[in-house]
């Protein structure tokens, strides 16, 4: 095992975020507002799940666990053992909420992967480069879609979604408890607080460019005490959903 417990905890938080946001995005398969968008959004979901798989495999390899255990590790942990943030977990029934969440999440995700670009672990650094290439498409998609909606009569809906999701989005930057060790070891180059500051700048910049007037009420640190260990309402139902197929035949080999 070459990863420190701190590094494992940190990567697990990113992996679980990618897993949950990917799973939630896939809820739109076949339901996107039009065919081209349906395909693009589901591609983004698939990319996020791909990032999660890359990180889960890394964690399994490091622990000396066979990769056949990936499904069990990804899907069958106790809720308290997940480290995902609430923004990635919650159910967004409204397309406008899902689109805004995608933008808020990917703005942060891009910065989080960048912080791992020169990671002391070469596998993590390689994953970071791959993820960043994919993120450039995710961000272009969010920018193009939202910038156009912002200038239509749907802008009020977008603003309402931003105001609803923004307080939850700050939970993205609830660092895992071990983060200070990671910085000291040089595993990451930026703290969650650094990333959060860059993220707020990027978000405010987007809003200004789109000419959207939004009150950003919640400040940093609102969820800090939870340190990603408490699951959001609806997590149990989400996990049950994800386990539906596995539960049909728990010993089947895929």
């Amino acid at each position: 095992m070459s990863l420190t417990p701190a590094a494992r905890e940190y990567l697990l938080a990113l992996a679980d975020d990618e897993h949950m946001i990917g799973a939630r995005h896939t809820n739109w398969i076949g339901l996107g507002p039009f065919l081209e968008e349906d395909l693009a959004f589901c591609s983004i979901a698939q990319d996020e799940l791909g990032h999660a798989i890359g990180l889960y495999e890394l964690l399994l390899d490091d622990a000396g666990t066979d990769r056949t255990q990936l499904d069990a590790f990804a899907l069958q942990r106790a809720p308290g053992d997940y480290r995902s943030c609430w923004l990635a977990e919650i159910k967004c029934l409204d397309w406008s909420d899902s689109l805004v969440r995608h933008w808020l999440y990917d703005r942060a995700e891009d910065l989080r992967w960048k912080a791992l670009e020169s990671c002391t672990d070469p596998v993590v650094a390689a994953l970071s480069l791959r993820a960043q290439r994919e993120e450039s498409f995710h961000l272009a998609h969010a920018e193009q879609f939202l910038s156009r909606l912002a200038s239509t009569d749907q802008s009020a809906r977008i603003v309402a979604s931003i105001e609803r999701l923004m307080p939850i989005a700050f939970g993205l930057f609830d660092s895992v408890a071990t983060e200070p060790d990671m910085l000291a070891e040089g595993f990451i180059t930026q703290s969650s607080a650094d990333i959060e500051a860059l993220w707020i700048d990027a978000i405010l910049d987007d809003l200004k460019r789109w000419d959207l007037d939004v009150d950003i009420v919640a400040g940093p640190g609102q969820f800090n005490e939870q340190r990603r260990t408490v699951r959001s309402d609806g997590f149990d139902a989400l996990q049950a959903d994800l386990l539906k197929v596995i539960s049909l035949d728990p010993i089947a080999v895929w």
Binding site: F34, L35, E36, L39, A40, S43, A140, H141, Q144, R148
Partner: peptide, 20 residues
Amino acid sequence: SLDAADPEMAVMYARETHNR
């Protein structure tokens, strides 16, 4: 072929609809 609101979005969508 594909449908899009404008040229920029068409190029963005084409990447996934025809070159995924």
